[in-house]
């Protein structure tokens, strides 16, 4: 059954997949198409995908002229990178300690991790908002990054992963005279790459696309992430200018989608492994 079938025998399968695929792609196709058309053409609601008058320069130009696109994308990169860096910095050593070291309180710590897995990030959001607002830290990178620096999911994932590493590896490193911290960064982390890339993809996808938290702590464009940028552009600038709005949507969607298209296999595997472990 794993044999290559003729095109004819494969046709029903391919047709079904293609039909479902076209449905999934439809929003992208229309989004790009609309971003190339002048507004009056959109208002005629023609079903032609290709624009009669090519208006891409004007639409995309409008987006770049009216909103700080690069500022949004830069903010998105800073926030995602900051979150990921802290998550790894905290979770890798903790995951290793929970997997391979004996210390007082280890079972309690692991219980806390399992408990933390059950709490959606929306639950602590209210008190965190109050805290940041009391400290006058709203509208800062810190407010965007700090709440996500601890990922119990990352700790759990790395613990499971390190559990599978042979104990001999760590014993050998100790016999070679390495400190525990040295073991983490020079022995354990190099072996953690598969789990780390999988988690990195999971984390970046989640936080690049997140709207809930940025919407709570950010006002105005200076610290807005791409998700907020689209929202601002939509309500302030575009109004009913769908052509420009679609151009903005294309611009903000592009970075992650391009990254995905370049590293498809890694993305899919990353989400699948993190998904199944979680």
């Amino acid at each position: 059954m794993d044999e290559r079938r003729s095109w004819l025998a494969d046709a029903p399968r391919l047709l079904l997949l293609a039909a479902l695929g076209l449905l999934v792609l439809a929003p992208y196709v229309w989004m790009v198409s609309a971003s190339l058309k002048p507004l009056d053409e959109l208002f005629r609601a023609s079903l032609a995908l290709w624009p009669e008058r090519f208006f891409a320069v004007e639409n995309y130009g409008k987006v770049f002229a009216r909103v700080p696109v690069f500022q949004y994308i830069w903010n998105g990169i800073v926030v995602c990178a900051g979150i990921l860096a802290f998550q790894l910095l905290f979770a890798v050593p903790a995951g290793y300690a929970l997997a391979k070291l004996r210390f007082p309180g280890r079972d309690i710590a692991f219980g806390a991790v399992m408990l933390g897995l059950l709490v959606p990030p929306h639950v602590p959001a209210l008190p965190l908002y109050v805290g940041f607002s009391q400290l006058g830290m709203l509208n800062t990178y810190a407010a965007l990054i700090l709440p996500f620096t601890i990922s119990v999911f990352a700790i759990f994932l790395f613990r499971q992963f390190f559990k599978a590493l042979p104990d001999e590896l760590i014993h050998a490193a100790r016999l070679d005279g390495m400190s525990e911290a040295g073991i983490v960064w020079r022995v354990v982390l190099p072996n953690a790459w598969p789990a780390a890339t999988a988690f990195a993809i999971f984390s970046v996808v989640a936080h690049w696309n997140d709207l809930f938290w940025p919407l709570i702590v950010v006002e105005g464009p200076s610290r807005a992430t791409p998700a907020l940028g689209v929202l601002f552009f939509r309500s302030d600038e575009a109004g009913d200018d769908f052509a420009a709005l679609m151009a903005a949507a294309v611009i903000m969607t592009a970075p992650l989608v391009l990254a995905f298209l370049f590293a498809q296999r890694r993305f899919v595997e990353g989400i699948a492994t993190t998904g199944l472990k979680g």
């Binding site: 929003p27 992208y28 989004m31 791409p226 949507a249 294309v250 993305f267």
Partner: peptide
């Protein structure tokens, strides 16, 4: 097809909502 069906997962939800 795997890539096509997976695309919405990595797309900016807000932008795609606009679409």
């Amino acid at each position: 097809f795997r890539a096509v069906f997976f695309l919405p997962v990595v797309s900016l939800t807000v932008a795609m909502a606009a679409a």
